[in-house]
Design a protein around this nucleic acid. Structure first.
Lengths: 399, 399
DNA sequence: TATAGTATTGAATCCGAGC
DNA sequence: CGCTCGGATTCAATACTAT
């Protein structure tokens, strides 16, 4: 839902404590008119000129106050500052939300072309994060350990000795005690996300457009699926596009009719540069299960409908002949699956076939006791039950 | 030269417009007493507790005002702070130096140990750079181009065509015109410099010690050899050590007698940690080949450096114990690989181990003729030679 | 001599105990 | 029920020991 108008008026019509997260990227008292044009030469602009800072701060104060009212007790607000942070706004936020509800100063940094000669290249922007109360919703995202981290730290339990020194824990036999599984390193407040490339497909032509990647991260850490996201200065609608892509409800407001029109257009086919959405075939949704689609999407393949023995063919041939893929169904034994694939593969003149079998606890180590045809390759899918997560195989740079 | 006392008193005795650069790392308004001890158990501390923010800001204002007097017209001031008071200090500096003399908000970011569960890890500090006048001294440092930069941009001359569009310049024969040699990318305002590690030799035991690397960069961009550097809150003397190493004159002031003594001791043999991380960068720790990274990226795992038997651990444990992963190296036989993994896995108390072996055409189907330990799982890697592209497994929506 | 492997420790911060 | 206080947990990066 997008509204055209001054957010002060429109926010007043909403129900209080109904919003989970607010992201705003307001004008920043630059005293300039921001202008940019799209591929067709249409010019988009907005005015950021004010009679005084006092006027500007009064404008912002009224609007932020009504935003706070709309937030649920668990809700949070992200205020995005262009280039050099607006310190006066920071103090305004402290006033409205209380200093104890200040959570983070997020630094968004990127590399960018510029010919600034005398001084440092300004390559970051600041986002202030406030929560309405102490009990705010937060989904930690975990990342990888640094390559310099000592792995024993992660594996071994530790304790304090009688001198209070932290030492590795040993059991009564003097053996090392393994620690619990660790989740990884929590996300830091410095985010390196590429600046929206001038050539990016995602780019609309609207000034100060933000990358979807940035908004996705903000939405992920602060909301769950189905939650409501509000952007009172939505511009070209990046926040709304990201919210839609992530299955959140969203409301946008902008005073510019052009902006609202553009955001509406973008929302028809929400698009993220390098979208995963495009990769998953639309037709295939009907006959394959979600699980099978997940598995098949890990391969470069063409999905086959209505064939009991074959689920897909690899796009590339081997020895001039196709390669068939099959996923062991939940109601098939591995022997049944092998036979089905073998017969179908012969019919289709495959040089090789690949069976993706479900490793469950009973059959886990039986694979090599089974006679497998010479031109069949078995790959395991360790699934949900096993907690191994071997199946989560993420893409790397293009091979 | 180092003075012991309140910098307000001591600054008053200096000649005005005599200093080229001032770096200050004052108390941050953390409302705590910072305490640490050196290797001999000597405790160093300073108080950072105040009756109110007003008191703190008044304290800072008086001192910054007298610092400004001492600066040469070409001089600059770096104020180091964190989120505890940064926006109030920023407004104070705007007041004293004038908003037009604000040059940069430098973000010093780093990785650090912490167990923050509910929110983002605070992994940055802020340094405000102000110049006394418009005509300030600044030495641009140039860095490497980003690996994603199109090399043509650097090598070829560009010009504007008749529509005002930037195009590659061609000569009258239609040949490309080479551009002038470029200096590289000017230094950005986001600096990733490792935090002073608890185990670093450089560490003195004085609390809140900054890395020499950080101060060297500040001194290099703002001063030339022979220039005078002042640090009115010098603490353990990192600024002075860096200035001495770079051939600048220096004056330090600290209210703590202990700090002054330590700084004096450090200056006798100025020392900078010679760490591999600083010398060759984080990449030197990344010892995996591209092929290995591709394979490992298919699993949810933590990559292990510097272990001959183990390349990674699965993030999830199995039977309460870790699961080690190894990729058969190109110069290893499968038996060697099995033995290395088995030994390493035992040492690290793994419940299971996973060996990813290279299926080449010769050894492809030999795997089950080899005796494999009961708790080791063998998975094939179909590699480059096979053109199967099975390895191209891209991520789908979160499982 | 180089490389693999091990032991630390903190401008941190969370959580539960004790007022 | 809101404090503070201390004990437990945390991981990056270094130094040191063993091979």
């Amino acid at each position: 839902m997008i509204f055209n108008g001054d957010c002060l008026d429109i926010l007043a019509t909403f129900e209080s404590e109904s919003v989970d997260m607010i992201y705003l990227d307001p004008p920043f008292f630059t005293q300039k008119t921001q202008k940019l044009s799209d591929k067709n030469g249409k010019i988009y602009k907005f005015k950021d000129t004010w009679s005084s800072r006092k006027e500007y701060l009064a404008f912002m104060k009224a609007r932020i106050l009504s935003m706070k009212k709309l937030l649920k007790p668990t809700g949070s607000l992200f205020l995005h500052c262009d280039t050099s942070a607006s310190w006066h706004l920071k103090i305004l936020l402290d006033e409205i939300f209380g200093e104890t509800n200040f959570r983070s100063e997020i630094i968004w940094c990127y590399k960018r072309w510029s010919n600034s000669q005398n001084g440092l290249l300004p390559n970051h922007q600041t986002i202030f994060l406030y929560s309405k109360t102490k009990n705010f919703k937060f989904n930690t995202i975990y990342g990888d350990y640094s390559p310099t981290t000592n792995i024993d730290q992660i594996l071994q339990e530790r304790e304090r000795d009688k001198f209070g020194k932290a030492v590795y824990k040993k059991n009564s036999n003097g053996e090392i005690v393994s620690g619990k599984a660790k989740k990884g390193v929590p996300l830091s407040d410095v985010w390196e996300i590429p600046f929206l490339n001038p050539k990016a497909k995602e780019r609309t032509g609207y000034p100060t457009q933000k990358p979807v990647e940035l908004l996705e991260r903000i939405i992920k850490i602060s909301t769950d699926k189905g939650d409501l996201v509000l952007d009172p200065f939505c511009g070209s609608g990046t926040t709304l596009v990201s919210a839609k892509l992530l299955g959140r409800k969203f409301v946008g407001i902008d005073i510019s009719k052009d902006a609202v029109e553009m955001a509406q257009k973008r929302l028809i086919t929400p698009f993220k540069t390098d979208s995963t959405l495009l990769r998953v075939g639309v037709d295939s949704y009907k006959t394959k299960t979600e699980r099978e689609l997940k598995i098949l999407s890990q391969f470069e393949c063409d999905i086959v409908q209505r064939n009991r023995g074959i689920d897909a063919f690899l796009k590339k041939h081997y020895l001039g002949l196709p390669v068939a893929l099959k996923i062991q169904k939940e109601n098939e034994t591995i022997l049944e699956a092998i036979n089905l694939l073998q017969n179908a593969g012969e019919k289709k003149k495959c040089s090789f076939t690949v069976l993706i079998y479900s490793k469950n606890e009973n059959s886990m180590f039986l694979a090599d006791e089974i006679s497998v045809p010479k031109n069949m390759i078995l790959l395991p899918v360790l699934d949900e039950n096993l907690n191994f997560e071997l199946q989560k195989r993420s893409a790397v740079s293009p091979f």
